[in-house]
Design a protein around this nucleic acid. Structure first.
Lengths: 183, 183
DNA sequence: ATGACTTGACGATACGTCTCGTATCGTCAT
DNA sequence: ATGACGATACGAGACGTATCGTCAAGTCAT
């Protein structure tokens, strides 16, 4: 009955190609013009196979952008304004090409649908990174103990997301400096 | 050849019913489950007639929420923290039921798509209102002349939009107070 | 004034298209 | 022999278009 395990295994190379194709198409076309058929065509992976690995379109898109959207590290120069500006600058550069995808992924989450948690999850590391920067500044006395760390981190995240993703505006260095200086 | 103008006029009552139905369905179902057919059914206006008045779904949704989402006035108590908190509180209450619709509308506006719902346009009056509050404070000397008005207004807007629409979180009074106080 | 006429907005309905997601089947490497 | 893969057909839902008959609102002739 239970023969050990024979037959072919799933092909990780196909998965890699599918994710690469999804990420490419995403920056080229934007979320809503990326279709499962186009991903299949570009990657050479059959559409059916895509659905064998990911339950729906939101899932494969999320997987495709997760790596690219993760912060690489948290700067620690000893100056909160420098660190914050550096990190926010990195965030802007990273999400700008995917702004459309991010907001659309969020959109797919409407009313208890799954997918929203994905966006929050993807941006969470950036929020955490900003919190770390602020808490280090608190620890070394650069900020007071009752400084509103979480609110400030949310405001910074919100500023970037609002302008880049919602308003689709560029953010100048001057703006960014004013943002992290105005405390 | 050119007879002045005869025949029936467009029915503003039908338009009113269509917009009301769209707004209702939006809060009940969220953007992506509102269909033109459902709006037609609920309002008693034929789908074809909807397309005679609005070019696409985004347009009718935008029209439907524009009024509800507009700020009624700009508070002016003489205290920038009070005014800002009041106004941001009003913004939160207004967009919370439409959070889903807003983010979806934003999604539709990306990549020069035609089905573009003008989210930026709808939120602009709120931004302007915050700018007014800050400039009044500057005028009466409560804020310095080089205070970054626009950046602050964007950060406040971003904070609300990010938490309410993206993360779908509630915002406490404490958070709001910390936001407008931390300057 | 009155009654026939013309215009065009509306409702109903059938389509065409696109895309998601499912079902089925033969092939072929392990 | 197993089962992952590619190819293909298919069903469902939604957007947006096309077409047609109806009917009310004005217009014009008498």
């Amino acid at each position: 009955m239970t023969r050990p395990r024979t037959g072919p295994r799933r092909d990780p190379e196909a998965q890699r190609r599918a994710l690469a194709a999804a990420a490419e198409l995403l920056t080229e076309l934007g979320f809503h013009k990326v279709t499962m058929e186009r991903i299949a065509e570009r990657s050479g992976v059959a559409k059916m196979t895509l659905y064998r690995w990911w339950p729906n379109k939101a899932a494969i898109i999320t997987d495709a952008v997760r790596d690219t959207l993760a912060p690489s590290s948290t700067p620690d120069t000893g100056s909160v304004t420098t660190d914050a500006r550096t990190q926010l600058d990195a965030l802007i550069k990273v999400i700008a090409p995917y702004g459309d995808a991010s907001v659309t992924a969020a959109a797919m989450s409407s009313r208890g649908e799954e997918g929203r948690a994905d966006l929050a999850g993807i941006l969470q590391p950036w929020h955490d990174s900003l919190v770390t920067i602020l808490e280090r500044a608190q620890a070394r006395g650069e900020l007071s103990q009752d400084f509103p760390v979480t609110v400030t981190a949310h405001a910074w995240m919100g500023y970037v997301v609002y302008r880049v993703v919602f308003l689709q505006q560029d953010i100048t260095e001057t703006d960014l400096t004013a943002l992290v200086t105005a405390r």
